[in-house]
Computed example of a mutant assay.
Amino acid sequence: MKALAFYGTRDLRMEERAIPVPAEDEILVRTRAATICTSDINDLKYNTFGLPVSTIMGHEGSGDVVSVGSKVQNIQPGDRVTAHPVMPCGKCDSCRRGLPHLCDDMTHLGLNKGGVFAEYFCIRADRVRKIPEGMDYALASLMEPVCVCLEAVERAAVQPGGNVLILGDGPFGILTAKLVQSRRPGCVVVTGRHDFRLKHATHAVGINEKAAPDIQEAILAASGGEGMDSAILCAGNAQAVNTAIQCLRARGTLAIFSVVSPMPDIDLFRVHVKELNLCGCCNDNDYLDQAIQLLADPALRLEEVITHRLPFAEWERAFHLAEFGKDEALKVTLTFD
C-alpha cells in the first residue's frame, strides 16, 4: 500500500508499505477519506509529540472494513466505519479513575501506531462507529474532531442562554462555533484574523482582530455589554488568554483548547475577584455516539468545515493548503479511490 511516513521536521514521504494485519481485537480498514488536522501540521513543523522516524501519520479517517480479528463482534467486512484514534489501555491510573481519554499509556493512530494517511489502517474495533446511511466518508472522518470540540464545550460549561466566546478562527474554532448551537446559547462570538474563515461561523458574531481597534471592547459590545459566561481558547496566542479573562463575567469559565506559546502572563487578580474557572481540555471522554448524531444534523451544517477534497496523490498540495491557505481553506480531506 501507499502511505505517508514521517522522517523528521518538514520531511513527509510517500512510500510503499506492507498492508497491516489486524490483531484479534482489531479491524483492517481500507481508507476512503483522511482529513488533515492542525496537530498533523504542528507535528511536521515541530514534532511536538516526539514521533518516531518512519511513523505513518494521520488520525482522522474513515473507510470500509476489509477484515476483522478473531475476537471482534458486531463489525464485519463491508461495513462503513469512522475511526477514533485514541485507544486507552484500560489499566493505568487515569483509566481506573474514569479518565480513559487522558490514559497514561494510550495507543494513538498516527503517533505510536500506523495512522490513516495510508491506503489501509488497523484500529481497535471498540474505537470505531458505523457510518450512517447517506453520510459520506469525508464528513464521517470528522467524528474525532467533533468529539474533542464537544469536550471543549463541556469543559467550558456552555449552558442554554449563556454567552460564549471562541478565540481563534481555525478549523477547531469554527467547528466549535457550529457545535455550541446544539446547546442553545445566547450570544456566540468568534474572534480571528481571516474573513473567509469567520464567515463559516454561522449563527455567530465574527470579529476580525485586524479590523477591531480594541478587541475587548468589540467582544463586550457584541454581547450587549453583558460579557461572556464561557470562553474557549482555540488559538495558541498568549494575548488571547487575557482577552478571554477580561471578557468573562463573574464565575465564568475559560477552557484552554490549544497549546499556548509563549507562556502568557495571566491576570490572576481578575481570576481571583471574579471567581473565574480556568481549565484544560484535551481529547474527549467518549463522545463518539453523540458526535455521529451531530454530524448527521443538517441544521449544524458541519460539512461546510471541509472546504477541499483532494486525491491522495495530491497530498503535497493538500498539506500546503491546510497550513497556508488561511484565506481559502479550513479542513482539507484526502480521498481514496
Rank of each mutant, 00 (worst) to 15 (best):
A201F: 00
G162F: 04
I131C: 06
Q159R: 15
M106N: 00
Q159L: 15
Q76L: 06
R129P: 11
Y137Q: 12
A157L: 10
R96S: 15
A138V: 14
T82L: 14
M135D: 10
G90L: 14
R155Y: 09
V148P: 01
V148M: 05
K199C: 02
L139S: 12
A201S: 06
F172Y: 10
A201M: 04
T107K: 13
V189P: 04
H203V: 02
L179W: 11
P171W: 04
P132G: 09
G173N: 11
Q73I: 10
Q73K: 14
V205E: 08
R80Y: 00
Q159E: 14
G186N: 05
G206Q: 00
N74E: 11
L139I: 10
P160L: 02
L175V: 03
P77Y: 02
N74W: 06
H84A: 14
P185A: 06
G192I: 01
M143N: 13
V189F: 09
K113T: 02
A152W: 05
G192Q: 03
D126H: 13
D79E: 09
A211I: 00
C147Q: 14
E151H: 10
G114P: 04
R183K: 15
A156V: 04
G186Q: 08
G90Q: 07
D104A: 09
G170S: 09
A201C: 08
R96M: 12
R155C: 10
L179M: 04
L165K: 12
G115Y: 06
R155T: 12
G90N: 11
D79L: 02
C149G: 02
A125P: 08
L109S: 09
A156T: 11
P132D: 08
G161M: 04
P100S: 03
S182A: 15
I166T: 05
L179H: 01
K210Q: 05
A212T: 07
G115H: 07
E154V: 12
D195P: 00
S141L: 15
C89P: 10
G186K: 12
R155K: 15
F117T: 02
C89K: 08
K130A: 11
V164L: 14
R97G: 08
P171Y: 03
I131K: 07
V146D: 03
L198Y: 01
L111R: 04
G170Y: 07
E144R: 11
V86R: 12
V180Q: 09
T191W: 02
S182F: 08
P100K: 02
P145W: 01
K113H: 14
C149N: 12
V188N: 03
H84F: 15
I207N: 09
R124G: 03
L139R: 15
L102R: 07
